[in-house]
Design a protein around this nucleic acid. Structure first.
Length: 268
DNA sequence: ATGCCCCATTAAATGGGA
């Protein structure tokens, strides 16, 4: 059976629940992973997901900041919420999705943005981001996160490739594209042997973005995007990878998120 | 080559995003 998994940094799930409903209706993914839900679990708009045909929810939220959630048409065998760097700041949730006779671990991550200054000595947010990536690599290796059928998706807040940003040269010293982040990002991916399935569809020498700043006068015309959102598949699941779509049009919807959803389809 | 914009909280700023 085909299994469609979507990831979307929604930038407030309560404010944009109508956009979520539209996306679910139009694209009908089996599983939707959200980041930056920005609400505590009690305030999560559960009823809207139920009404849209997504009765299974794994939520890890908090008041105001961050927050992740997984909504699914398929049942969960298990849910986990992991804290990183000694904080419980709602940046990870995992749901093991029962898809046919397979069980797929869906890890949904929101990596810290890292602030402005790319120097851990003077910017604690950047130091936290680097520590977070180091801890991710250690966790993936120690717990063999990618040993079975697994995906790791989310807003990973790193644009690793030259063509994951609008200008490699202009952004080399900008947080999300600095060499130290890119190197650590590669270590996280390698820790699980994860495959970057987005780049199987759009080759590395072509521009590929999932985020466009709110600050540009005309986001489409300026097209100064970044690929901050990722879909990684474990080696076993990647054997069934079929296709991937970046839903760029949603950036032009009314009151949009600055990120657009990405869907990936796997045969399981 | 950035921009000058969004969101949530709590009450006209502030912190965070990236």
């Amino acid at each position: 059976m085909p299994l469609t998994i979507a990831t979307w940094n929604i930038n407030s799930v309560r404010l944009r629940i109508a956009l979520v409903e539209r996306f679910l209706k139009e694209e009908a993914p089996d599983v939707l992973c959200l980041q930056e839900t920005k609400c505590c679990d009690e305030a999560f708009p559960v009823a809207a997901f139920h009404a849209a045909g997504y009765p299974h929810l794994a939520i890890n939220g908090q008041k105001g900041y961050h927050g992740v959630a997984i909504a699914s048409r398929l049942p969960f065998a298990r849910i986990e919420r992991r804290g990183f760097c000694g904080k419980n700041d709602a940046r990870h949730v995992m749901a093991q999705v029962e898809a046919g006779n397979r069980a797929v671990d869906v890890h949904n991550l929101y990596v810290p943005a890292g602030g402005d200054e790319p120097d851990p000595a003077i910017n604690p947010k950047f130091a936290h981001k680097l520590d977070f990536l180091r801890e991710m690599a250690a966790w993936i290796e120690r717990d063999a996160v990618a040993s079975g059928d697994a995906v790791l998706v989310g807003d990973l807040n790193v644009s690793p490739g030259e063509h994951d940003v609008w200008s490699h040269r202009a952004l080399l010293n900008t947080v999300c594209h600095t060499p130290v982040e890119v190197e650590l990002f590669g270590r996280v991916q390698a820790a699980g042997g994860f495959l970057d399935v987005m780049r199987r569809v759009i080759p590395p020498h072509e521009k590929c973005y999932t985020w466009w700043s709110y600050r540009a006068a005309d986001w489409l015309k300026a097209d100064r995007g970044r690929r901050l959102d990722h879909v990684w598949a474990s080696p076993r699941l990647a054997q069934g990878f079929r296709t991937m779509t970046i839903h760029k049009a949603s950036r032009g919807w009314e009151r949009p998120s600055d990120h657009v959803p990405v869907t990936a389809v796997f045969a399981v």
